[in-house]
Design a protein around this nucleic acid. Sequence first.
DNA 1: TTGTACGCGTTATCAG
DNA 2: CTGATAACGCGTACAA
Lengths: 339, 339
Amino acid sequence: MDSINIKKLAEALKLSTSTISRAFRDNSDISSATKELILAKAKELNYQPNHYASNLREQKSKTIAVIVPELANNYFSQAIHGIERIARENGYHILIYVTDDDFKKEVTFIRHLHNGRADGIVMSVSGEANDHNYLNKFGNKRLPLVFFDRIYEDIETPRVITNDYNSSFLGTEHLIDQGCKRIAYMVVNKSLSIGKTRMQGYIDALEKHHIKFDESLIVDCSNSYEENSVIIKQALTDLKPDGVFTSVERLAFATYYACYDLKISIPHDLKVISFSSLEIAPLLNPSLSTITQPAVEIGEQAAKLLFIILDGKADKNHPHEVVLQSKIIQRNSTSNQPK
Amino acid sequence: MDSINIKKLAEALKLSTSTISRAFRDNSDISSATKELILAKAKELNYQPNHYASNLREQKSKTIAVIVPELANNYFSQAIHGIERIARENGYHILIYVTDDDFKKEVTFIRHLHNGRADGIVMSVSGEANDHNYLNKFGNKRLPLVFFDRIYEDIETPRVITNDYNSSFLGTEHLIDQGCKRIAYMVVNKSLSIGKTRMQGYIDALEKHHIKFDESLIVDCSNSYEENSVIIKQALTDLKPDGVFTSVERLAFATYYACYDLKISIPHDLKVISFSSLEIAPLLNPSLSTITQPAVEIGEQAAKLLFIILDGKADKNHPHEVVLQSKIIQRNSTSNQPK
DNA sequence: TTGTACGCGTTATCAG
DNA sequence: CTGATAACGCGTACAA
């Protein structure tokens, strides 16, 4: 038998297991001499307190779960990075779950996580169109949960969002300022809370500038690359917009591809602006005007909010909302200067 | 007391805990009637076997750890996605650790993981220049480990890599075919195994075409965006290359930015090709020629390799190497047609 | 088919 | 300051 545990270490040192245990915990009384002795021997024998035993004992896992709709999106990668950093600073580890925008997976993940595997959850949701009530079924056993970016408005839990309404209002206004009259709005799922908020900013900006809102200019896209390609080409051909506002970066890319194919010139024939955290937006052809969310910071804030709950400094049902500011960055895709 | 456990569920059903336990395991004998009864009640009371208790008992965590140098890189995001998918199919969860290319963090993560928290590790390494022997210090207690992409050649463990030598040979040859005579090679860390392999392909391609290898054309970059900007501008100005081969996409972006600033026209004055898994490479200005690795598949293969070990179908020290093929995709950044 | 009892590796409590 | 002991929640021999 080659595995090491507290008992064997105790035997090796002629000490009790309690003493060993104490050497690894900061709070307990122990002479610094024996402590060093123990830690030295532990290192030699490659001993570490077993995580599962400790956590069974302490009823906590020092782990937080992160659930995101997708990974192939700069925004979520950056957000996860932020979460990871804060988690590590707090001695926590992170489990990653990708729903691929599948609500059923989300429910499965969340349910599963309630077996003690994680102490809390940071999530960007995938199923606004569905019944979120599953989150309330856990009663007061529900794990601490923090939403970021994509949230369920009807679930009371802390959240980190950006000023989406205002951003899309300003983004739309920017297109109008650049001379656009027919602005299409591309969205993946109208019913997503984030889709709705962003859309409202678009609608209100149109109204302010006395442009009649035309529902047909709302283009509802899917999650499939191929489908979107078809949908967008169709929309550009049929609707003949002179401006496009896309609610996620993926749709801006699809619009670019469509324009290449259809020989539509950006920004001459069509101006494009998008929500996007893409760091290389300036390198696109043409460079893409963006509304950029502070993705890393959003992740950090979400993690911090979760730790406030985990540290018992706030009730987990107490709604707490952090609103961060996005930046609108004008680039060539919305320029009205001849190039 | 509101928490549910096996004992309370047993009481509620007037059954023993072992019977409950059996209902949740496929192998044990139990009448399907009682099993259904138990599962129904469990659902009602929101009971799930505690993960930590189970795993303490069974001495395994059903968790694999994924260690990557960075997250803000399409390649790693995609690879993680692949790993996640395979893990989920096998009923495993994944823990994510980001080293930020810091070798010390890598060592800390690996050490820590040997406390039972994970059953295996999938890693792309961060410290080729350092002493990797720490991986051998665990003796036969070392966790099953699979490298992907960035590996330590001196550590015997399964690995998934791409045909880097050949790819960079072909990439370099492509630049030569397009008329380049002075090809700079940009690398983040010369000593990284992956950097060395890729560099050798570059060198051999030059030789084949009777171009003298000039060491000063090897540009050693850093991980800092600002530093790279300076280094690359300097290199472009001093060395006046007519072609650039970058070993990671980040450096291609930096080169693009530098060229914008220096008014160097790509591809007219300078042709650029890069290793990159960026899906929107065609959208860049100009579209970027790439050597694209099958990132998702690499992740999947790495995970599969790990599961082969975890399932006991292979000895963990048995070296097993999977080599996947990258694709070289020519776009405008290496075009020699007048645009 | 079901129940009893022990142990997985820790840590908190209490006694010394 | 250190040691003995019980308990965390579960799964499996073994017994019934």
